[in-house]
């Protein structure tokens, strides 16, 4: 197998795994809430691979449902954030000097508040819950991609072939569509995919702190923050397995992102 085929293999494998988690969790969303006190506090066994908690809920089902929620929310917010970044980045580059300094100021402002703190503030402003997380992650993750796109468009604007195209009488729209878009789009997509792991990690973190999804939902952050109360009693499985599965999912998102980057980059075709 050459490098490219290997990359495609990893891409397909991780995409398949993540899709499976997202889909299964969606199917099990009712099952995750089932409580059964006849099976409470079970250590991991064949029937309940992740054990059960103090209310007799199957932790495996609960974890997968939580991760499914995280993945769907992560994809949604990363996409929203990337689109926002694209609009801001291109806006800063083409709308003139005033817009540029305003947007650059905004980027510096958002970057000046630590991510988690800003997430807490935005989530608080939205009244916590689903919208708190969704808006929070969207509004905190766009800055670096916006900066990248802004730089790229600025560079393109001053490049020779674009100026020649303008001199040859091509309209602004033609130049934007024909010469700029093919450069920006791959950057945009890799930026978007690289946002996924961050979005998921931050969703879990903010929910863990109590500002995200409500405690009734089987979110991964809720599972882990509940597990803290039982760690001292030796119920390690309540934290270890859900956390490990979260790690695997984020890791696979990274693999996915890097595979796509490598496939898009024409320089690596012959590796």
């Amino acid at each position: 197998m050459n490098q490219r085929k290997k990359t495609i293999f990893w891409l397909a494998a991780s995409a398949l795994f993540l899709l499976a988690v997202a889909f299964l969790g969606y199917l099990w969303r009712d099952e995750a809430l089932v409580t059964d006190f006849s099976r409470k506090n079970l250590a991991p066994c064949l029937k309940y691979p992740f054990g059960t908690d103090f209310m007799g809920r199957d932790m495996f089902v609960r974890t997968v449902t939580g991760l499914s929620l995280s993945i769907r929310l992560g994809v949604l917010t990363a996409a929203a954030s990337a689109i926002f970044a694209g609009v801001m980045g291109i806006g800063a580059a083409v709308l003139g000097k005033a817009a540029d300094s305003a947007i650059t100021f905004l980027i510096d402002l958002v970057m000046g508040i630590p991510h988690i703190l800003l997430l807490v503030l935005i989530s608080y402003a939205c009244g916590k819950g689903f919208w708190g997380v969704a808006v929070g992650i969207t509004l905190t993750h766009w800055t670096s991609l916006a900066r990248l796109i802004r730089g790229e468009v600025m560079q393109l604007k001053s490049s020779q072939y674009i100026q020649i195209a303008a001199k040859l009488g091509q309209s602004r729209l033609q130049i934007a569509g024909k010469h700029m878009l093919p450069h920006i789009l791959p950057q945009f997509f890799t930026g978007l995919i690289l946002l996924f792991p961050h979005a998921i990690l931050h969703e879990a973190s903010i929910t863990f702190l109590g500002f995200g999804l409500s405690p009734e939902q089987p979110a991964i952050g809720v599972i882990l923050s509940e597990s803290m109360r039982y760690l001292a009693m030796g119920r390690w499985w309540l934290a270890a397995f859900p956390g490990a599965l979260l790690m695997i999912c984020v890791l696979l998102f990274r693999v996915l992102g890097e595979s796509v980057c490598r496939l898009i980059d024409p320089g690596s075709v012959h590796e």
């Binding site: 792991p197 973190s205 882990l224 934290a239 956390g243 790690m247 984020v250 890791l251 990274r254």
Partner: peptide, 18 residues
């Protein structure tokens, strides 16, 4: 590094605690 970048800080803290 990749493993750590995929681990939320609070989960690592939980593991250390355990």
């Amino acid at each position: 590094s990749l493993l750590m970048a995929s681990t939320p800080a609070f989960f690592l803290a939980l593991v250390l605690l355990m």
